[in-house]
Design a protein around this nucleic acid. Structure first.
Lengths: 129, 129
DNA sequence: ATCGGTGCAAAGGGTTTGCAGGGTA
DNA sequence: TACCCTGCAAACCCTTTGCACCGAT
């Protein structure tokens, strides 16, 4: 029974609007723009609450745990190793059960492509290799 | 210029013998069987050294950073959400560049299938759902 | 005899928890 | 009014670092 508070609404709105995986730190920074006194602990508690309600899903990218809105079709992620931002890719087209041997029960899968995004790629080209 | 010490040899042997991703904690537990006084800091330093030498590769599975021997062909992983152990799957058959839009530069990718391994699957069946 | 490696303990970063006060229902 | 939520601070992992001693070369 979660209550509607300004903090929770603001935090959830960040995830819905950004529409990409955010780390707790990022979410806190974004939400703190409207709520300067927002504590990081509140962000963690809100995230864990939203996870329990099925509003957010965890995503592990680049060694960090991030969270994204859970109402999207299954998809994969691109992690830019320059700006460390993660973007969502198109719908998933992988049949995970075909990848595992007999006897394993498949529940889901996660695919992350690593590289540089167009913005960083371009930035590097200007400065040189 | 890394020296050959009993600690480093034991730690590396764990990764080579297990042939699956190990967390620093797991590696420490395994190596401490032969070296009771082994400190966890030594494990972390050894792992970082082996990473620099290209003997180990990092793998992020189930939210934890693990490491595995780097001399294997590109492959993916299966993470058992019951016993939290990770096993290696067959060689990779995914063409990552086809998954990203124009403008992105692909450097690599990582795929983890989640579920329950045969051992845990069986154990659950005995106890009931 | 060097000089890197090791173990211990302390420091750091990220996440969770305890507590008193405030806001939602 | 009752009780959850919030902010702050302390507590907890996990990982790295400082330091004196040990050991490989």
């Amino acid at each position: 029974v979660q209550r509607r508070t300004r903090q929770r609404e603001t935090i959830l709105a960040c995830f819905l609007e950004e529409d990409r995986p955010l780390s707790p730190r990022e979410a806190h920074a974004l939400a703190a723009a409207s709520l300067p006194a927002l504590g990081i602990a509140t962000v963690y508690r809100a995230i864990n609450g939203f996870l329990a309600e099925g509003l957010l899903s965890p995503v592990v990218v680049g060694g960090a745990t991030c969270y994204e809105r859970a109402d999207k079709a299954p998809h994969h992620h691109f992690f830019c190793q320059t700006c460390h931002q993660t973007t969502c890719l198109d719908a998933c087209s992988i049949e995970a059960p075909k990848l595992v041997p007999e006897g394993y029960r498949v529940q889901g899968h996660e695919l992350t492509v690593t590289g540089t995004c167009p913005a960083c790629h371009q930035r590097e080209a200007q400065v040189g290799p």
